[in-house]
Each structure stands twice: as C-alpha cells, then as structure tokens.
Amino acid sequence: MVIKNNKNKEGLLREFSKGIFRQNPIFVSVLGLCPALAVTTSLENALGMGVAVSFVLVFSNSIISSMRNILPNKIRIPCFIVVIASFVTIVELLMAAFAPLLAKQLGIFVPLIVVNCIIMGRAEAFASRNSVLTSLFDGLGMGLGFTLAISCVALIRQVLGRCGILVMLLPPGALLTLGFLMGGLNLMKKEK
C-alpha cells in the first residue's frame, strides 16, 4: 500500500483528524467512559492509559483490517475479541515489566481495555470495511482523540483537586467534570 498522490494523502489526514475533533470518542460518540473516569485522578495516569489504548487500537485496527476479507461474517465478533485481547495482554505484560508503578495505579483498568467500546466499535464500524493503511490512521486518530479527552478531564480534576476542592479527586468529581465539559462543548457547538 503506497501513497500514490496528493488526494490519497488528504484522505488519510482526514481519517486521522476526525477522531480528534469531529468524532471524538469521549465527547461526541460517548464511548469508552469507564477508564476515562476511573483513571483521571492524575495527568500521568491519564496519559499512560491513553498510550495503552492507542497502542491496542492501532494494532487491532490494522490486524483486523488485514483479515477483513477472510473472516466469516458470522464469527467476526469473537475473532475481533481474540485479536483485541491478545494486544491487551501484550500491553499488560509490557506495562508490568517497564512501568510497574503505572500498572499498579491503573490496576484492573488495564485488562479492562478489552471491553473498551471504542476499540470494538472501531473494529466493527471501520476496520472491517477499510484498507489497512486507512484503518491504521483511523486508529491513531481515535487513540489521540481519546488521550486528549481524558488528559483534559484529568488536568481539570488534578488542578482543582490540588487547589483544595478535594471532591474533584474523588469519584463524584470525575462525573461532574465530564458532565460539565460535555455541556460546555454542546453550548459551543450551538453558538457556531
């Protein structure tokens, strides 16, 4: 798969950028919320989670897309699950080896990347219908969008929490931040 002309390049760029704003997994599609809320107590955790999810997303998207023509339609979902779960296991082992502190902080949410709806959603809606290269860029964009969104939530929570509003670091703070962020985005969209 070689990028032949300029038009093709623009197409890839569009696939890449749509995950960041127009179809942001957290704020627009409202997918993958569980990790987004649970690990956003600090910016480091959020970034770690974002990188882990992006890694799984990019690889599972490209593998699934390369198998899209040989997978029987009826058992495609279990096949997706196996591919995704394999990459999650790789991330789990890598993280335990090279970033044990982060692995401990994220805890149960590392294996739970398997059931993150974004990854399954992209596999079903995009990777099973598009070429390997576009799926790879789609995965990159969605991963980046996810990372940006949860980092944004984490930043707000951490700053407010350190300023003395302790409840922001506790579970209610996560839900409150996300609720008002989404409301704010809706407001901005309407004004445009």
């Binding site: 703070g173 839900l175 609720g179 409301g183 809706n186």
Partner: peptide, 23 residues
C-alpha cells in the same frame, strides 16, 4: 433542563450527585 445539558451531560451530573450520596 438547560438545552446544552440535555441528555447525557445532565445524566453525568446526576450520577455525580448520586455518587456523592453513596460516599
């Protein structure tokens, strides 16, 4: 409900208050 908060955003805010109560 204020227009921009309708649907999911206000559901999050309610969940946050419930979570506060459960604390």
């Amino acid at each position: 409900t204020p227009k921009s908060l309708r649907g999911i955003p206000v559901a999050f805010i309610i969940a946050s208050l419930m979570s506060l109560a459960f604390m």
